[in-house]
């Protein structure tokens, strides 16, 4: 299918982009920001969106790239998935981001799709929002009024709705380095390789010297209109000494993950009904935590 007509604006700078977006807001025009376009173009082709203009940020080098900033890794919004998953900095310091990014769509889509685009699309079935939530990333945005920071916990407002005000551009994301002792895993469950996650679990787990879990961060994909933290399980995992499953029939990890779905409101769609998603969240959280522990 074929998109409806729209104007195309290629701002020369971020300031320029913010001005364009602000003007559009004033004029009441519905403009959309174009990053890699891998989610937006299918929507336009199916005529599920009718923007009056696209503001293409794809030519702004200042939005692209990965930097080691001491206590965090900064990922420019327009950095492609492919660049993120290959980045040595990302792989060394925030490996959960690389692990989850490698499961996004397929190689060709990862060459065009961007880290910030996926975040700003705020699709709870996307793999990266749950990671951002689990790692307490900070979103750096700019408008004509200046820059502000939005914690991940506040960024994903509702289904496909980020906390970006009209006129705001996502510049990049600060991904905190968690330090040593952490293990990571992204467990994605989908019906075919290129299908969206039915449920995904982003897990970061820190083990103490004694081998018991001291801290866990769990983000859930596609378990509600936004990504969700499995807070009850995070608490339950603290102090758990993982033992090999089946040795005496007990599995403390499984027990700790038995409420991984608490506080979620999973959707019903073609691929799963809510009770199955809840079940998957429990099983997959157990698996993700186990894998993160190595």
């Amino acid at each position: 299918m074929i998109p409806a007509p729209f104007d195309y604006i290629r701002p020369a700078s971020v300031e320029d982009a913010c001005r364009v977006l602000a003007d559009a807001e004033t004029a009441g025009d519905e403009v959309k920001v174009l990053a890699g376009g891998q989610s937006l173009l299918p929507l336009l082709r199916l005529r599920l969106a009718y923007p009056s203009a696209l503001v293409d940020l794809g030519r702004l080098p200042e939005l692209r790239g990965v930097a080691d900033r001491g206590d965090h890794v900064y990922i420019g919004a327009l950095t492609t998935h492919d660049e993120v998953m290959r980045s040595g900095v990302v792989r060394e310091h925030v490996p959960l981001v690389a692990l989850a990014t490698a499961t996004v769509a397929d190689p060709a889509v990862r060459h065009r799709g961007t880290f910030g685009g996926s975040m700003a699309h705020a699709d709870p079935a996307g793999d990266l929002p749950a990671v951002a939530l689990a790692l307490d990333c900070v979103f750096v945005v700019r408008s004509s009024d200046g820059e502000r920071e939005i914690p991940a916990a506040e960024f994903f407002v509702d289904y496909l709705e980020p906390a970006l005000e009209p006129g705001e551009v996502l510049l990049g994301v600060r991904v905190p380095k968690l330090g040593s002792g952490w293990g990571f895993h992204y467990e994605k469950f989908h019906r075919t390789a290129q299908a969206w996650a039915t449920v995904g679990v982003a897990a970061a787990v820190r083990r103490g010297d004694g081998g018991t879990i001291e801290e866990a961060r769990i983000g859930l994909t596609n378990m509600g209109p936004t990504p969700v933290r499995a807070r009850v399980t995070e608490v339950a995992l603290r102090g758990v000494a993982p033992s090999p499953s089946g040795s005496n029939g007990s599995d403390p990890l499984r027990d700790a993950c038995a409420q991984a779905d608490a506080g979620t409101s999973p959707p019903a769609d073609l691929h799963a009904r809510p009770d199955y998603r809840r079940h998957l969240a429990r099983v997959l959280t157990r698996r993700a935590v186990g894998a993160a522990l190595g």
Binding site: G246, D251, P267, A268, D269, L270, R273, D275, H279
Partner: peptide, 21 residues
């Protein structure tokens, strides 16, 4: 045995198949 048994779904949550999100 419990370790290979899937949890029984609660009937209250069984929505019709194919419902839109």
């Amino acid at each position: 045995p419990a370790q290979s048994r899937a949890a029984v779904p609660s009937t209250s949550e069984i929505a019709p198949e194919g419902g839109a999100r």
